[in-house]
Amino acid sequence: SGEEFIAMYTYESSEQGDLTFQQGDVILVTKKDGDWWTGTVGDKAGVFPSNYVRLKD
């Protein structure tokens, strides 16, 4: 389980282990570690910068 966040911006990365997503995607955040959080979008999982998302209303 985790908290749902909304992507405010598209995040694209070629780094292994990074979670890429489109603006407006719902991200289920499973771990918060400083500026880099872990989460899932659909069947993808990985880390992403926390300043790209906001808490879902």
Rank of each mutant, 00 (worst) to 15 (best):
M8L: 11
G24F: 08
Y52M: 09
N51V: 12
Y52P: 01
D18F: 13
T20V: 09
D43P: 10
W36P: 03
S14Y: 10
Q16C: 10
G39C: 03
T10D: 11
Y11V: 01
D25N: 05
G42H: 12
D33A: 11
E3Q: 11
T38F: 13
Y11D: 02
I27P: 09
Q16M: 15
L28R: 14
L19A: 01
G24D: 12
E3R: 06
D35C: 06
Y11T: 03
S50V: 04
S50A: 15
K44N: 03
V26I: 14
D18H: 15
T38V: 10
E15V: 13
V26P: 09
E15S: 14
D35E: 13
K44C: 04
S13D: 03
Q22L: 08
T40C: 12
F48G: 01
V47N: 08
E15H: 12
T30K: 06
L28A: 12
F5A: 11
Y52E: 03
Q22W: 05
T30N: 12
G2A: 11
V29M: 00
L28S: 13
S50D: 03
S13C: 04
G39P: 00
E4L: 10
R54P: 03
T30C: 07
L28Y: 07
Q23D: 07
D25M: 04
V53L: 06
A7V: 00
G34Y: 03
D33W: 01
G46A: 01
D25C: 02
S13A: 11
L55Q: 14
D25H: 00
P49V: 00
N51P: 02
S13T: 08
I6T: 13
G46N: 00
W36M: 14
L28Q: 13
F21G: 03
G46K: 00
T20W: 06
F21S: 02
K56L: 08
Q22T: 10
N51K: 11
Q16G: 12
F5I: 07
T40I: 06
Q22K: 11
T30V: 07
Y11G: 03
E3Y: 06
D35Y: 08
P49E: 00
G46T: 00
T38H: 05
D35T: 14
D25V: 01
F48K: 03
V41W: 04
P49C: 02
Q22R: 13
D43N: 14
S13P: 08
S1M: 09
G39Y: 01
K31P: 11
E12R: 09
W36N: 08
S50H: 03
F48H: 02
T30S: 06
V53R: 01
T30M: 08
W37E: 04
D35S: 15
V41I: 14
L55M: 09
N51I: 05
G46W: 00
D18V: 12
F21H: 03
L19C: 04
N51Y: 06
M8I: 06
T10R: 06
I27S: 04
W37P: 03
R54L: 07
G24P: 00
T20H: 10
G42L: 08
E12C: 11
D18T: 12
T20R: 09
T30D: 07
I27Q: 03
S50C: 10
D33Q: 09
W36S: 11
V53C: 07
G24S: 05
G17H: 11
Q16T: 13
T38R: 11
D18A: 13
K56C: 14
V41N: 14
S1L: 12
W37K: 03
D33T: 11
D57T: 15
W36K: 15
G17C: 12
F5T: 04
D35K: 15
E3L: 07
M8D: 07
V41E: 02
E3S: 08
G17T: 08
Q22I: 09
W37L: 05
L55D: 07
F5G: 10
V29G: 04
K32F: 04
P49Q: 05
E15A: 14
Q23M: 09
E12I: 12
G2W: 07
T10K: 10
E15Q: 15
W36R: 13
I27F: 00
V29Q: 03
V29W: 01
K44V: 06
M8T: 08
W37A: 03
G42Q: 13
G2L: 06
I6Y: 06
S1C: 09
E15W: 08
V26F: 05
Q23K: 14
T30H: 15
K44L: 06
V41A: 14
W36I: 08
D35M: 10
Q22S: 13
Q23E: 14
W37G: 00
T20L: 05
G17M: 07
K56D: 10
W37Q: 03
L28P: 05
D25I: 00
F21E: 01
